[in-house]
Computed example of a mutant assay.
Amino acid sequence: MSIEMRRSFGTLRMPAGFGGLLPALILVTLFFVVPVLALLLRSVTGPEPGFQNYATLLGDGTYARVFFNTFLVASVVTIVTVLVAFPVAWMLAIMPSALASIVFGVIILSMWTNLLTRTYAWMVLLQRTGVINRTLMDIGLISTPLPLINNLTGVTIGMVYIMLPFMILPLVGTLRAIDPMTLRAAALCGASPFDAFCRILLPLSLPGIAAGGLMVFVMSLGYFVTPALLGGTSNMMLAEMIAQMIQSLLNWGLGSAAAFILLVVTMALYALQLRLVGAGRATGGV
């Protein structure tokens, strides 16, 4: 065989390293691509071929209210989670490593606790005769119990608690990568602590905030257990509506259309973040 023919055969060979990716590609195809295609097919074929399911979802005021509640809850949970997680992440970044490991272990331990157990615990704490209302009444801050459950307040509290570790993890990695000498240099130049935070620390921590914020927002969009148990019927979210359509109403077409819209919105948000901050910064350095 001539050298030219050998070179031509070499160009037709499988790329180096592709064989190692083949199992992963098969898994992605079987467990992601095929279900998504089946979901799309069901949304445009049931009960009749066409796009009437999408027209119903986007044109009916009841379903529009569910979409509004979903994005409102996800936005509120993301904002509150960032506000709570930032000082915790900064504390973990600057405290001694031994103490930080203990606190970090407590945070990770909360992720390993059963989700349903944690949600029921918040139901006990937030109800009208729960520990929180009884404590506030005993110390004289309130005279009547606060409505902390079956509304947006209860959903926000429960979901923020569950989402905190997912925001803290990328934030800690980003904050630990910031050189402390940068803040000291700002102080030596006359910057106040507030100016150093707004002009140096906050901009440098934006990749971690973006990565954690996207993760929390996307997970909140599709959350089911916590909103179903802590929220009321007036605050139904999209995941709960999809479950009701498929399990109770057996309306697979409408449920599949709602699930596909949620998937498209999620992918669009991730693509937008990649466009704005780049692939490397979108992960927050994790």
Rank of each mutant, 00 (worst) to 15 (best):
A89E: 06
A89L: 06
A89H: 02
W90P: 07
L92P: 04
A93P: 06
I94E: 14
M95C: 04
M95I: 15
P96I: 05
S97A: 14
S101M: 10
F104Y: 15
F104V: 11
F104G: 10
F104D: 12
F104C: 08
G105T: 14
G105N: 07
V106R: 09
V106H: 12
I108M: 12
L109M: 15
L109F: 15
M111E: 07
W112Q: 01
W112P: 03
T113W: 00
N114I: 13
N114V: 15
T117D: 14
T119N: 00
W122D: 01
M123L: 09
V124W: 10
V124Q: 14
G130I: 02
V131C: 10
V131R: 11
V131T: 15
I132F: 06
N133I: 03
N133G: 09
R134Y: 13
R134Q: 14
L136I: 05
M137I: 06
D138A: 07
I139T: 02
L141H: 03
L141P: 01
S143A: 13
T144F: 06
T144H: 08
P147V: 12
P147S: 12
L148Q: 01
L148N: 00
N150D: 15
V155P: 04
V155M: 09
I157E: 01
G158Y: 02
M159R: 03
Y161E: 08
I162F: 06
I162A: 04
M163K: 06
L164V: 07
L164T: 01
F166H: 01
P170Y: 07
V172D: 01
L175H: 14
R176M: 09
I178F: 07
I178T: 09
D179M: 11
T182C: 10
T182H: 10
T182F: 09
L183G: 12
R184A: 11
A186T: 04
L188Y: 11
G190H: 02
S192Q: 05
F194D: 12
F197N: 15
F197I: 14
C198Q: 12
C198D: 13
I200E: 04
L201H: 10
L201C: 13
P203L: 06
P203Q: 05
P203F: 00
